[in-house]
């Protein structure tokens, strides 16, 4: 199914929660959605037989300097089509509902986004730092991150 058709169906069903389709320069195209509706839209995309996006290829946080974004890349084993879903978050309190009960593959990737960006996934069954030590301060992949001088006495 083409990205435009997916966008039109989603817009028809969810109305204002679906903001726009970013196809220019993006492969696969992104459907930009409002963060609060991510879980509903995710369940619809997974369960609707015309879409059946049963595989979450990749979940990543992005820091566009004025705001954060969470980008989901979805793929359907049945129909062999792919789409991207993106939700923009404010920089001060980035928070978005979790999708780890829709696609269990999301859990570790959400923890990574939390660890490296500080994006909080509400309702996640396990949200802790995953790659960095638990007492690390700061979120390294943010654009304004300053490298610490010492960690436990060893120079960073």
């Amino acid at each position: 199914m083409e990205a435009q058709a997916i966008f039109d169906t989603l817009k028809g069903k969810f109305g204002d929660a679906v903001v726009e389709l970013k196809g220019e320069g993006c492969t696969p195209a992104f459907v930009v959605v409002v963060p609060a509706s991510v879980k509903e839209i995710a369940m619809f995309l997974r369960d609707d037989p015309a879409f059946s996006f049963d595989s979450l290829m990749c979940l990543s946080g992005v820091d566009y300097k004025e705001k954060f974004a969470v980008a989901y890349h979805l793929h359907s084993m049945k129909h062999r089509h792919a789409i991207g879903v993106k939700a923009f978050l404010p920089r001060e309190t980035p928070s978005i509902p979790t999708v780890d009960d829709v696609w269990p593959a999301a859990n570790f990737q959400e923890r990574e986004a939390f660890d490296l960006f500080g994006i909080v996934f509400e309702g996640s069954k396990d949200l802790r730092r995953i790659l960095l030590p638990p007492d690390w301060e700061g979120h390294p992949l943010r654009k304004d991150y300053k490298y610490p001088d010492f960690y436990h006495g060893i120079k960073v």
Binding site: G25, F30, M57, H73
Partner: peptide
Amino acid sequence: PPVGEVYFR
């Protein structure tokens, strides 16, 4: 490269 985003696997 031009401005854009790509996912390749």
